[in-house]
Write a protein that binds this DNA or RNA. Structure first.
Lengths: 177, 177
DNA sequence: GAAGTCATGTAATTGGTTACATGATTGA
DNA sequence: TCAATCATGTAACCAATTACATGACTTC
């Protein structure tokens, strides 16, 4: 029961802010939600169809370009979203392959362990500037509308990324001796 | 291609340390790997069967108790594991429903946002002592075998959990004004 | 006119969860 | 003897990815 589909809520959430096409929804997920959620086209388009069927979103065929289809949230969709938002979160989960490979690294040797840590650190270092920039912008935008919520989630990214980098140092120190 | 099954490697990894039953594998995952991986019985038992079919593990029907079936890793299984361990990690991902509900919280109001943060903090506070105790024990055990790798992954848990708690404070401060 | 990106969608497959079914063992 | 836990396993279901198919628009 705890494993319901969340993508419909993600999409409704995005639509609650603005009218969007499937393609744009994918972009939003890959940028703003990147560090705590993911989804592919192969799940986004079918879910969009479902939302329309259930009366939670409306399809607007007449985009500025002929082949663009944009979606808006319906009042019923907004109600659905609000109900879900107020329910306690059921599942927060991590799947860190890096940690897995590290946990079992005894079998493969310390060099490969150090490589995994370095790869991980590199990925984080690449992404951190984007996140810091988001925070900078959001702090300027002040307390209107959804901005404080965006800020808080971006700060989560920053905090955890910084913790990851500190851990990489620490782990290196322990293993590389 | 990036989305191959990882559970076979998780199980082989655990078997590379010791002989285990399916039930014990589940327990290991729920304790030692808890904060970066998960799996259910419904995936563990079929995977165990697969591993035996592929010659990567052996089934030992004669446990101390009649209805216990334990598994050991074969040399081929060890080779398979080692190869995987040395390949770069492809996928590190988070699915934090809490963050999702926070990102869209404008629709539901600040009270529910603060509730989500508090629930999250509570969960972390509950789990942190166990993790700290693991670190304490592992630091005592020294540098033999897999211990440094266990230590490093446990420290990852501690570092991130502490970062989460700091973030909860910060987020509360921003939203609760 | 070619390359790249914007844009939508489907089919096959898979990895996994949930719920169920069953039964042995242990300890109060 | 009853409850809890140990222990294994299957079937139904589902969410999601990957790969594929298609075509319009933009820019050099």
């Amino acid at each position: 029961m705890a494993n319901e589909k969340k993508l419909d809520c993600v999409i409704l959430g995005l639509l609650s802010h603005e009218e969007l096409t499937g393609y744009e929804i994918k972009k939003r997920i890959d940028t703003a939600l990147k560090y705590f959620w993911g989804a592919s086209f192969g799940s986004i388009y079918p879910t969009l169809k479902e939302l329309v069927d259930k009366g939670l979103a409306d399809k607007n065929e007449s985009g500025q370009s002929r082949n663009q289809i944009s979606y808006t949230i319906t009042p019923k969709g907004r109600e659905f979203l609000k109900t879900w938002l107020r329910l306690p979160a059921e599942k927060d989960e991590l799947r860190y392959e890096t940690l897995l490979k590290l946990f079992f690294a005894d079998e493969a040797g310390v060099d490969s362990a150090l490589m995994h840590i370095e790869n991980f650190a590199q990925k984080i270092r690449n992404e951190l500037p984007f996140l810091l920039e988001s925070v900078r912008v959001l702090e300027h935008l002040g307390n209107e509308g959804a901005h404080p919520y965006y800020l808080v989630t971006a700060l989560f990214g920053v905090k955890t990324y910084q913790a990851y980098l500190e851990w990489c140092e620490e782990a290196n120190g322990i293993l590389d001796k």
